[in-house]
């Protein structure tokens, strides 16, 4: 690996300048489904690079349709948990970006206090998190929560 793990996980703005409040504020002004989905897809394009070598079974999030990968890194110095997520579907990448904005760069305890469903509810995207949609988002969030629980 050319760059160290710490840099790879922490050199991005998710949970920093890209955060839930900012996303919700922007989203509120989008008028139709074209604008909303264009914004979601754009958010996905901002996701930090996910190392190809980590796209292995152990990091695979089992959903029904698109492929999702998730890895994490606990920064011992700050006690913060960092996440990287990737998917082969544009919209799922965008939804992953919303998850990352809400959950990245927080201590495991802070992370577990985040109510992701509420965020998706506010964005009227709740059906993406519901059990009927097999796009892996629900299992993505669940996996992050399990990781955080194990680190406490």
């Amino acid at each position: 690996m050319t760059i160290d793990k710490h840099t790879q996980f922490t050199q991005n703005d998710f949970g920093g300048s890209i955060n839930t409040d900012e996303i919700l504020d922007t989203f509120e002004f989008l008028e139709d489904w074209e604008e909303r989905y264009a914004y979601i897809i754009d958010l996905g394009k901002k996701l930090p690079e996910f190392p190809e070598s980590e796209k292995v079974e152990a990091n695979y999030v089992h959903g029904c349709q698109s492929q999702v990968w998730l890895i994490h890194y606990l920064d011992k110095a700050s006690g913060k948990l960092y996440l990287l997520i990737d998917s082969d579907a544009l919209i799922v990448r965008g939804l992953a970006a919303i998850v990352l904005a809400a959950m990245n760069a927080k201590s495991p305890n802070e992370l577990l206090a985040v109510n992701v469903e509420e965020i998706f509810e506010k964005m009227d995207l709740i059906r993406h998190v519901s059990a009927t949609r097999g796009n892996g988002l629900r299992s993505m969030v669940k996996k992050v929560q399990v990781i955080a629980e194990q680190l406490i």
Binding site: W33, Y37, C64, Q65, S66, S87, D88, A89, L90, I91, V92, G134, N135
Partner: peptide
């Protein structure tokens, strides 16, 4: 450039039901 699940979601927004997967 699109995953089938993207196509399904975006068509659904326009009232069109297809299957993806």
């Amino acid at each position: 450039g699109l995953h089938p699940s993207d196509i399904g979601t975006l068509l659904d927004q326009q009232g069109i039901a297809i299957r993806t997967g």
